[in-house]
């Protein structure tokens, strides 16, 4: 353990703001990359289901 207590861990010497900002932004970017395909897959599935229904109604 490089830090004595949790407050010191948050402070990161004097560089707390930089380190946590970098990690926060990374978390955001990665979360966006994970969420985008999940949402797109859901929208695509709904769209395809709607198309199938419409075709069944037409025939």
């Amino acid at each position: 353990m490089a830090f004595d207590n949790f407050a010191e861990f948050l402070a990161m010497g004097k560089h707390g703001a930089y380190v946590w900002a970098a990690y926060g932004i990374s978390l955001l970017v990665i979360a966006a990359n994970i969420l985008a395909p999940i949402l797109r897959q859901r929208a695509l599935r709904i769209d395809i289901q709607r198309k199938i229904k419409r075709e069944k109604l037409e025939s």
Binding site: F3, K14, H15, G16, A22
Partner: peptide, 21 residues
């Protein structure tokens, strides 16, 4: 990297950004 690795003797703790960079 964030909690257990020792701080860098030159850069202190800011080097921990390396683990993403």
């Amino acid at each position: 990297g964030l909690a257990f690795a020792p701080p860098d003797y030159l850069q202190g703790n800011s080097y921990r950004i390396m683990y993403i960079h």
